[in-house]
Design a protein around this nucleic acid. Structure first.
Lengths: 95, 95
DNA sequence: GACATATTTGCGCAAATAAGCAAATATTAC
DNA sequence: GTAATATTTGCTTATTTGCGCAAATATGTC
């Protein structure tokens, strides 16, 4: 694993390691259909602007996928990609 | 998963999500035997005091185990515990 | 005891982070 | 066009974080 990858992984873990962001991820886990920021800001009781910023971070790190739908944007989890990265780290740690 | 567990998981991910700390974890991955802070501070070119603080964070979150050996303390990874938590999160995300 | 080594702690500083609010922007509906 | 809704952005504030250095502490060696 080179430096670049390690930096990327650190950013991913940091993105997931903030309580409100993690709560949004869990929320998205439980909803089968994509949600918008207005909905997701409720699960952690923050302003919509705050949720928007958190979701931007999650999108940058590839945790969520954004789809523009009219005046709203819906977010869904990149389940397999994230799960794969977490498992890869688990494997490496256990090796 | 209740609030307490989620906070705990967020703290774990945050602990792993800092580049120098993650580097120490990788370093510990590669050494089969436990290492002390003096050794671990080299892999990320920081002061020993900084390494000491980082290792304290990792210990608090259960990432590493500390063994007091004379005037030094040796650190080793709690491999299975961490791997298990990461896989549990992966499973939950993928579900 | 004196000295060396490993770690921790206190302090200060700079940068990053999270939050809320208000304003700006985009898009839909009427 | 106007009004309503969803999002983003700018601004400010408060807090946290990471770092280095120096001093303090702990422990082993002589």
């Amino acid at each position: 694993m080179d430096t670049r990858e390690r930096e990327e992984l650190a950013r991913l873990l940091k993105a997931l390691g903030e309580y409100n962001r993690l709560s949004m991820v869990y929320e998205l886990c439980e909803c089968s259909s994509p949600r918008n920021a207005m909905c997701l800001c409720e699960c952690c009781s923050v302003d919509a602007s705050v949720a928007s910023r958190h979701l931007k971070v999650l999108a940058q790190e590839g945790v969520v996928q954004v789809v523009k739908k009219g005046r709203e944007r819906t977010y869904s989890l990149n389940k397999t990609a994230i799960a794969q990265k977490l498992r890869a780290l688990a494997d490496q740690i256990e090796s």
